[in-house]
Amino acid sequence: MPFAKTTGNSNERLARVENSVLTEYGFFMMSGDGKPIQEPGPGFAARPLQLCTAYEDTLYFHSYPDMQDVTVIVETWRSQPPLEALNEVSDEEQTVTAVFSSNSVSIGAFGDDISGIPLARPGRQKILVRCNGREEARQQYFADPAVQLDGVEAWVIRLWPSGD
């Protein structure tokens, strides 16, 4: 999957990917390219369900229905994105810090639908996760588990090197 790359100053977006990603078993993930996927730990599916759970070289993004296509935008930045990129409205938001020991990441049901998304550098990354439609998908799924929910959830995931 091709993605947009930019070059220039330190506050610039490095890459942007937008695609549909299949969730399986109620999640999709991001993993460090060439790194082992970390198994979920205790409390992985505890309610209320977090937007994401971070492990070394692996992030799990939690979706309520078992299987659906969700819209995902991933942006990697050289440093913290400018305020205009951070002020958009979303239904849910979570910020986490995770360590990626590779130069790039992949995203998908098992971390491999879109690969080679470059990071500014390996190491600690700040990740801002935003989602719209997750509560709507949850309500529709519990009202009728057979309902088609493709495209209800839209995710924006931004990564940049952490200063801590």
Rank of each mutant, 00 (worst) to 15 (best):
Lys5Val: 10
Asn9Leu: 12
Ser10Gly: 07
Glu12Asp: 11
Arg13Asp: 00
Leu14Tyr: 01
Ala15Arg: 01
Arg16Cys: 02
Thr23Val: 08
Tyr25Trp: 14
Met30Gly: 11
Met30Phe: 07
Gly32Val: 02
Asp33Ile: 01
Ile37Lys: 09
Gly41Trp: 13
Ala46Ser: 14
Arg47Ile: 12
Arg47Tyr: 09
Gln50Asp: 14
Leu51Asp: 10
Tyr55Pro: 03
Tyr55Thr: 00
Glu56Cys: 02
Thr58Glu: 05
Phe61Cys: 08
Pro65Gln: 02
Asp66Tyr: 01
Asp66Lys: 14
Met67Pro: 00
Met67Ile: 10
Asp69Arg: 14
Thr71Arg: 12
Val74Thr: 04
Val74Trp: 02
Glu75Thr: 05
Glu75His: 08
Thr76Gly: 09
Ser79Cys: 05
Gln80Phe: 00
Gln80Thr: 07
Pro81Met: 03
Leu83Ile: 06
Leu86Gly: 06
Val89Thr: 05
Val89Asp: 11
Ser90Phe: 05
Val99Asn: 08
Ser102Gly: 05
Ile107Ser: 10
Ile107Val: 15
Gly108Ile: 09
Gly111Asn: 05
Ile114Ala: 00
Gly116Thr: 08
Pro118Thr: 10
Ala120Asp: 00
Pro122Tyr: 09
Pro122Asp: 04
Arg124Val: 14
Arg124Tyr: 03
Gln125Asn: 04
Lys126Ala: 07
Asn132Tyr: 04
Asn132Lys: 14
Arg134Leu: 05
Glu136Gln: 12
Gln139Thr: 04
Gln140Asn: 04
Phe142Val: 10
Asp144Tyr: 05
Asp144Met: 09
Gln148Trp: 02
Ile157Glu: 01
Arg158Asn: 08
Arg158Met: 15
Ser162Phe: 12
Ser162Ala: 15
Asp164Thr: 12
